[in-house]
Nucleic acid binder design. Structure first.
Lengths: 166, 166
DNA sequence: TTACTCATGTAACAAGTTACATGATTTA
DNA sequence: TAAATCATGTAACTTGTTACATGAGTAA
């Protein structure tokens, strides 16, 4: 089964029109809703794995550049669809740094708790502002991700507000 | 700075009364709101790292067992509080398999989309049912995590419903 | 005494990170 | 021609995974 990164790479190529490994990398580096570094050390080896597995094909780009044009093969399409539609994977709660810390915050002294929650709330509001600024320019793949990220951040703000009130 | 797992390990010992590495491991293995395997290969090395760094102290448990009793040191307390309260880390959107796939689902053919979303929705409802069953028995650290996981899952269900209607 | 749970650990592997290295092409 | 960007890749490291190995205590 594909890893999360491998599935995302296939989707960048098939669904978002990325032509080269460099473009895939740039997309991860600049995405506000996906937390990957987009490091060369992750993306290039992942693409090599996918190519070895026959899920990606590459050919030289016309125009003299050394860039390789990437394409998802038929087997790659099938693997991507299976990855995207696997209910167990998709329904998992994921790794959430906020949720992981939530119980710990409740055990802090009142002043420390207030300080911690205020700081987090401010960082979340900044995240929301950035998402709202960029969501209009997002493409049809990124937009729903950003909308869901926005809803998550608002849910967190609500939780913080309720917690501070009680 | 601590990794997410290291922070969680410290919190298990300080805030949830886990006395041994085995108990920490069992907590991760059975937690519905934290997605770690709780494998020996992650927990024991993490505890060794924390002990080497002076954030955990251990002494033999009385009673003839070979178990070591773990304790968070003062330096460990400070590191844990800094980890838990770091706003940038806490406000990150995390790795969410649902969000990552959301844009891809929207590009599927109508029948495939309906099938995928129905399958995911069913898995989410099962997750909600399991959380609702267990949340009453959860301790003060785990309960808020489960409540937030529940809200996340309901948010996802809402999104699926809206998407299927449009 | 057999099975289960408690308890700790290592080995091989997978897959990410940062940092470094190289070189072509385009733009100021 | 100098700087920025496009483009690909490797090396060393970190930290997670599964699977295996070992042994003590407890309950059937």
């Amino acid at each position: 089964m594909l890893t999360e990164l491998e599935g995302a790479v296939l989707s960048e190529i098939r669904d978002r029109g990325r032509k080269t490994a460099f473009q895939v990398r740039s997309a991860f580096k600049s995405s506000p809703s996906v937390e990957w570094s987009g490091s060369a050390g992750s993306v290039y080896p992942a693409i090599k794995r996918l190519e070895t597995a026959g899920l990606i094909a590459s050919e030289p780009l016309p125009g003299g550049r050394q860039a390789m044009a990437l394409k998802v093969t038929e087997a790659g399409e099938a693997a991507l669809d299976a990855w995207a539609s696997d209910p167990q994977r998709a329904a998992g709660v994921g790794l959430d740094p906020f949720r992981l810390r939530s119980g710990i915050w409740l055990r802090l002294e009142p002043e420390a708790q207030r300080a911690a929650l205020d700081g987090v709330a401010e960082a979340i509001r900044a995240s929301i502002a950035a998402h709202e600024r960029d969501v209009a320019a997002a493409d049809p793949i990124e937009r729903p991700r950003m909308m869901l990220a926005l809803r998550l951040q608002r849910l967190r703000l609500d939780w913080i507000e309720e917690t501070l009130k009680s």
